[in-house]
Each structure stands twice: as structure tokens, then as C-alpha cells.
Simulated scan of single mutants.
Amino acid sequence: MKKLLLCLALAGMTSALYAQKGGDMLVSGSLSWKSSSSKATVASTSATEKGSRSFEITPQFHYFVIDKLSVGGAIGYSFTKDPNYNNSTNGDQLFDKSGLFIIRPMVSYYISLGEKFYYVPRFYVGAGFGKNKSEINDTDVTEQNTSMFQIGLNLLNFEFRPSDHIGIMFNAGDLGYRTDITKEGDNKLSNRSFSLGLNLGATIGFNYYF
């Protein structure tokens, strides 16, 4: 009986140490909203201008194909709205708007750093497509097709597991490459960027395991 209890205790410790088992699943994601405005006062008269606005929602799903190794993906949408300093006939501010649908498959590996704490390097590839619109005046709007491709590593990605079903993920550094392509008629503009940063766009996310 004592040997049986000891085996059960060791099995329980092993289960706690390797909480991410083959066959486990988790859902996660991110939701963000940013808005800004400016206010100027001249001769006791105040005027407020709307600034940039952005919105992004990106749900994720992951499946552990073996212990500590998950494959997953994210499908999301991002929208930005920036003042372009054109004005309508009645003086209203006009804007540049951009909407982008995003698909991002990824692979993550969990390395235990102690009970309930993990280092989770993650490799991802992303692609997106959408449109850019620029308001010229009250009636004229220019439109451009846009696409995006990215590849990268979340090098400083950590997770804390306070319970069996909840994980808190913190990311503080990426190594990545991204290219954005904008097309209007026969014209094409490409922007490429490479990033390697500590605390670059640090984020906190929540995972639910089932």
C-alpha cells in the first residue's frame, strides 16, 4: 500500500511539472483599443481634434501534439484610423483608414522553470490582406489593396500557471521580419522591416486550458 501511494504521489508530481500534455488544448487571444485627441485653446476659444485610433482582436487556438509542444493559429482583424489633415467643406477632419485580416500559424515549446512557471519560445508565420482608404474631400476617397507577410520568434515568452485551467502569458521580446505591400492600379509599394527588441511592445495574455 505504501508503495502504491508513493507511486501515485510521484505521478501527481510529474503531472504538475509537465502540465502541458499531448492532447491538451487551449484558447487564448488579444483585444486592444487605442484612441487619442488634441485640444487647443486660443483667445479663450477651445477646439478639439480627433487623433489616431486603432482596434485589434486576435483569438487563438492551440493543440499539444506531444508533451510540451503545441501547434496553433490565430485569426484576427486590425483597424487603424489616422487624421490626414484634409478637411471637408464644413471643416470636419478627414482620415486615412486601414483594415487588415490576419492569419498566423505558430509552434510553441514549453520549458519548465519551476512549479507553475514556464519559458515558452514560439515560432510564427503570418499573412494578412486588406484595404487602405484615404478621404480626400467630402466625396472623393482613394483606395489601395494591401497585404502583409511576417515571420519571427517570440524569444522572451513566459507563462505562469496559477491553476490547472488558467495560464498568464507575458511576452517581452521578439526577433522578426515583416513586409507590407500596397497596390494601387499598376503601382506597387513595398515596406520591409526587421526587429530585434527587448520589451518591444510587451504584452500580457490569458490562456484557458481544457
Rank of each mutant, 00 (worst) to 15 (best):
L8P: 00
V42L: 12
A9H: 02
M25L: 12
D140T: 08
A127W: 09
G72L: 06
K34D: 07
S52T: 03
S98P: 00
T89L: 11
L26G: 00
E49V: 10
T80R: 11
T48H: 04
G205W: 00
Q60N: 12
I66R: 10
K133E: 13
S112D: 11
F210T: 00
I57Q: 13
C7Q: 11
L69M: 14
L200M: 05
R161C: 12
F123N: 01
S190P: 01
S147Y: 06
K183V: 10
S52P: 03
G22F: 01
V141F: 01
A40G: 11
N87E: 10
V141T: 09
Q150C: 12
E49A: 11
S190Q: 07
D82M: 04
S112A: 15
F101G: 02
S163R: 10
T41S: 15
I102L: 13
K188G: 02
N191W: 06
G205F: 02
S46I: 03
S88H: 05
A43C: 05
P162R: 13
D67E: 15
A74Y: 04
G22D: 06
T48E: 14
H165I: 08
L189K: 11
A74I: 06
V27K: 04
K2H: 15
P83C: 06
A127P: 00
S37N: 10
D174N: 07
F206V: 15
T48D: 09
E159C: 02
R53S: 06
T203S: 06
A9Q: 07
E115F: 13
N145I: 04
V42E: 12
S32I: 09
F61G: 10
D24F: 02
I102G: 00
T146W: 01
G173Q: 03
G114M: 14
I111E: 12
W33A: 14
W33M: 09
Y119S: 03
G205S: 05
K34G: 09
L94A: 07
E143K: 13
S37I: 05
M1Y: 12
L189M: 08
R53N: 05
F55Q: 00
D138I: 11
S134D: 11
S32F: 11
R161W: 07
G130H: 01
Y209A: 02
S88W: 01
N87I: 04
T45P: 09
F55W: 01
D96I: 06
D180V: 08
T41G: 12
Y63P: 04
D164S: 15
G130L: 04
E135K: 10
N84K: 10
L10I: 05
A19H: 06
L200I: 02
L113V: 10
W33E: 04
L94K: 08
V107H: 00
N137E: 01
L100V: 12
T203K: 03
V120Y: 03
S193E: 13
G76I: 10
S70K: 04
Y177G: 08
F79Y: 15
A19K: 07
H62E: 05
I111C: 09
G73F: 02
N154Y: 01
G23K: 08
I103M: 10
I111L: 14
G197M: 00
L153W: 09
K133R: 03
V107W: 01
K81L: 08
T48F: 03
N199R: 01
D24V: 02
I57Y: 11
T45G: 06
S147I: 09
R192D: 13
S37H: 10
S36N: 04
A16F: 13
R104T: 13
S78Y: 09
A16M: 14
T48M: 06
E56Q: 14
